[in-house]
Design a protein around this nucleic acid. Structure first.
Length: 500
RNA sequence: GCCGGAGUAGCUCAGUCGGUUAGAGCAGCGGAAUCAUAAUCCGCGUGUCGCAGGUUCGAGUCCUGCCUCCGGCACCA
């Protein structure tokens, strides 16, 4: 089995923020989970560097677009590393390998007769060197950036015959209901297609910052087509001298709702036109909202992932994002909420569960997990849980899967109270029961922790080491006997000093 | 305007094919315990299930109308 998951490629007209990290973490959790299943996984992220907005941002900063990309791409690369993303490659659309492959695919679409020359007419800003949409034009027919008056211009463009794919797209949605998830996003895409599709321009003549159209080098490919193709092109050159496409294509995409249309409509149509298999599917997530607003620089409500990671660690951030907000929907986040979940759930419930379990095995059994059978009462709480989590993650239900796992954490704390090992330890006749209880705790903790491993790779790794569990695959409750010698473990989620 | 979704406990939400006293987490109040990062566990809810009708033996769950909010509606990263 192979699993290929992608994040959107991030646009280099600004610094990375939590919104980018969110998509990356989501894809990473899926990638790690599929590796736990023993599958061949390829996980891609990267940067989108062509197009008008980058050219403009570069102009504002007095640098070339290339220089802007060279400065910002490493920032996004660092961000991926900081959130502990296990991506197998980092693509930049300025890569030679990408550009070459884009030209090949676009040429194929052209050869297949899905491209024609047309006239694009619209409001043009000479400073931007591009056309403006009706929505962006400011009062007085002015450019929103340069504030100068726009002129009505025409330009010869190459157009992609998107309209020809309406029927095929409808068929795709009908035959593969999970192609776009969650379902309400699929409905949006479907409604959009049913209204009728208009051809879209595939190239820009006046803009120079892009991949040249192979049969007409006076023009560059419209940034969206070059950008989407990253998912396909990366496989062809990510490994020197090896084409991974046959192994990993088609991809599964993670993206936010603002780019649904491009991914759910343009993208599969374009692939069909090129004669390439459409993606396996895609999951569209919502926005993380701070104080009710989308995070944006202009609103000044950006939650800086660097800061959060420095204080709480990457795992805590990874956990919080998918615990607090139901994945797929918009949701509120806040520093207060973050601290509350860190303290009550990570430190008190989970961290302390690990601590007390290890401590009791240390105290009552010299740090060796007893060889015993778990009590049925505890075992039943774990019945079928791995399958449920797998099933939920197959549907990218990151939050629901985490809910399911967290019930185990709570069940284990309950179990400790119910069985009160400290009482059992006082009476020699309860020795056998105590073995059973302590074994159950160690085993339950192991299973729970392996399930959490995709979400919080670092801390769970530390705990698994302490549990003397070398394996990182998906577990089964009761599959491991006792006898392991436990190691010392520092608190997984130390409480912060209360700030004054 | 058109299409779609949502309106359930103070807050965030779950309620599958209509069926027993409508649930969870958080917050709040009370209690137990001491293995543990003073961490945990137990108990406590008089909710017009947006409003008004209707179908049904029976509706949060289906139908109609209305109110409120949100999203999508073509080239916007």
């Amino acid at each position: 089995m192979a699993f290929y998951v992608t994040t959107p490629i991030y646009y280099v007209n600004g610094e990375p923020h939590l919104g980018h990290a969110y998509s990356t973490i989501a894809a990473d959790i899926l990638a790690r989970h599929h590796r736990q299943r023993g599958e061949d996984v390829f996980f891609l992220t990267g940067t989108d560097e062509f197009g008008e907005p980058v050219a403009q941002q570069a102009e504002r900063e007095g640098v070339t677009p290339r220089e802007l990309g060279d400065r910002l791409a490493p920032r996004f690369k660092e961000m991926a590393a900081k959130v502990n993303a296990s991506n197998d490659f980092f693509i930049r659309t300025t890569d030679e390998g990408h550009q070459r492959r884009v030209q090949e695919v676009v040429q194929r679409v052209y050869d297949n007769g899905h491209v024609y020359e047309g006239m694009y007419e619209g409001w043009y800003c000479p400073r931007c060197a591009d056309f403006k949409t009706e929505a962006e034009i400011e009062d007085g027919n002015r450019c929103p950036i340069h504030k100068i008056e726009l002129t009505r211009e025409k330009e010869k463009n190459w157009f992609f015959r998107l309209s020809a794919f309406q029927e095929e797209l409808e068929k795709l949605y009908a035959e593969r209901p999970s192609f776009v998830e969650p379902g309400f996003r699929r409905n949006e895409a479907l409604a959009f297609v049913r209204q009728g599709l208009q051809d879209v321009s595939l190239s820009r003549r006046r803009l120079k910052w892009g991949v040249p159209v192979p049969w007409d080098t006076d023009q560059v490919i419209y940034v969206w087509f070059d950008a989407l193709l990253n998912y396909y092109t990366a496989l062809s050159y990510a490994r020197d001298g090896e084409d991974l496409t046959p192994l990993f294509w088609p991809a599964f995409h993670i993206l936010a709702k603002d780019i649904l249309k491009f991914h759910a409509v343009y993208w599969p149509a374009f692939l069909m036109a090129a004669g390439i298999e459409v993606p396996k599917g895609m999951f569209i997530h919502g926005f993380l909202l701070m104080e009710g607003h989308k995070m944006s620089k202009s609103l000044g409500n950006v939650l800086d992932p660097d800061q959060v990671i420095e204080m709480f660690g990457a795992d805590a951030l990874r956990y919080y994002c998918f615990r607090e907000v139901s994945f797929g929907r918009d949701g509120q986040i806040s520093p207060q909420g973050f601290e509350a979940r860190y303290e009550t759930e990570l430190a008190n419930e989970y961290g302390n569960l690990a601590n007390r379990s290890l401590s009791m095995i240390g105290r009552y059994r010299d740090g060796v997990v007893p060889s015993a059978d778990p009590e049925a009462e505890l075992a039943s709480a774990f019945e079928g849980v791995v399958e449920r989590v797998r099933g939920l993650l197959d549907e990218s239900e990151l939050t629901h899967a985490l809910d399911e796992i967290w019930k185990l954490v709570r069940r284990l704390n309950q179990y400790v109270e119910e069985t009160a090992p400290w009482k059992l330890a006082k009476d020699e006749t309860d020795s056998e029961r105590l073995d059973s209880v302590l074994y159950g705790l160690a085993e339950g903790l192991r299973v729970t922790t392996l399930l959490l491993h995709a979400y919080m790779p670092d801390t769970t790794g530390r705990l698994l080491d302490a549990l003397a569990e070398p394996d990182r695959g998906l577990p089964e409750f009761g599959s491991r006997g006792g006898g392991q010698i436990l190691a010392e473990l520092d608190p997984l989620f130390p409480k912060l000093q209360k700030a004054q």
